[in-house]
């Protein structure tokens, strides 16, 4: 496979790639054929003199039938193959492990059967089919992992589902592919495909997000906070360079005086930041919409401490 095809890391990927390859070969064939005649005729029948003889040909029924029937047959083959592969995508095996996915502006939240929750980082086991049961808290989003060749819109009305069996350990990008507003291009997540041993360790770990596996709890707090800043999606709304986003910038936030919607003023100290992460709507900074999700039960106290330490470094 050539390099423009992304790594294939699920049981469904090779099907999609095979159809793509088939259509690519046909397309290149027809494109070369058409270009060949376009260039060949242009050279051969270029006007050499003003009174050049031309043939009076108005059509040919046989050739019309040929170039109608051949593409029709090929198109039907492509249709059938595409449909067969699509059916597989729509029918998860009965023993698939279920994960609830909640999409909201602008993060992914995952809830596992054992009560664990994580934000923007999904943990699955290599070789074990997974079925995602997805809903949105606000507008339409779409869950897409290119390496798995799967995509499904996530709706605010009813549940949608998607399944795959990861076939390689590693970390793969999750993109939101339905435009959902200011933070759309930052609504990124990761699928961590773990070996059975690592997955068992993750299941036992106390940390909410499973940093015991990903590494991080052994880092200095500020560095860990920096990882969390991007892993947990803070970066979708809070910039580090002073640019105004959906939420206030983190640049110089720690220790800053913030004016709240009720007119009062607070200093952004440790306790204010902790409260604002756990219960964002408690003390809203004036000028921003109340859209931040509550991280109570999602981030541990240790993780919040790490984020606060990180904020102190952002002067």
């Amino acid at each position: 496979m050539t390099s423009w095809i992304p790594e294939s890391a699920s049981n469904l990927a090779s099907n999609v790639d095979n159809i793509t390859l088939f259509v690519t070969v046909l397309s290149v064939f027809f494109c070369v054929l058409i270009s060949f005649f376009l260039i060949y005729y242009s050279i051969k029948y270029r006007r050499k003199s003003e009174n050049q003889e031309t043939a009076y040909i108005t059509g040919n029924e046989l050739i019309e039938i040929i170039w109608t029937v051949i593409p029709s047959i090929l198109l039907m083959v492509i249709f059938a193959w595409g449909y067969i592969a699509f059916r597989e995508l729509k029918h998860p095996p009965a023993d698939a492990l279920e994960i609830n996915v909640i999409a909201k502006q602008w993060l992914w939240q995952f809830e596992y059967f054992n009560g664990k929750k994580s934000i923007n980082e999904m943990y699955v086991q290599k070789g074990r089919p997974v079925r995602l049961i997805m809903r949105s808290d606000d507008v339409i989003h779409s869950f897409f992992v290119p390496q798995f060749r799967v995509k499904q819109d996530v709706l605010p009305v009813n549940y949608s589902q998607l399944w795959f069996t990861p076939t390689k350990t590693g970390t793969y990008d999750i993109y939101c592919t339905e435009y959902c507003g200011a933070g759309h291009s930052k609504m990124l997540g990761k699928v961590n495909v773990l070996s059975p041993e690592a997955y068992a360790r993750w299941e036992r770990a106390d940390e909410f997000g499973g940093d015991a596996v990903a590494g991080g709890s052994d880092l200095p707090p500020a560095e860990r906070g920096e990882n969390l800043y991007s892993q947990r999606g803070c970066n979708a709304c809070h910039s580090l360079d002073g640019a105004d986003g959906v939420g206030p910038t983190f640049k110089g936030l720690f220790g800053r005086e913030e004016k709240l919607v009720d007119g009062s003023v607070v200093i952004a100290d440790e306790n204010y930041i902790k409260e604002s992460i756990y219960v964002p709507q408690a003390k809203m900074v004036a000028g921003y919409a109340p859209v931040m999700p509550a991280f109570k039960g999602i981030l541990s106290d240790d993780e919040v401490t790490a984020i606060i330490e990180f904020l102190k470094t952002q002067k």
Partner: peptide
């Protein structure tokens, strides 16, 4: 020439399983 490319790439998108990957 260009419309041929436009039309042929539409066939990729018409094939269901491939469209799932390529949509948006």
């Amino acid at each position: 020439f260009l419309f041929t490319i436009g039309g042929l790439t539409g066939v990729f998108l018409g094939a269901l399983a491939v469209d799932v990957h390529l949509h948006d």
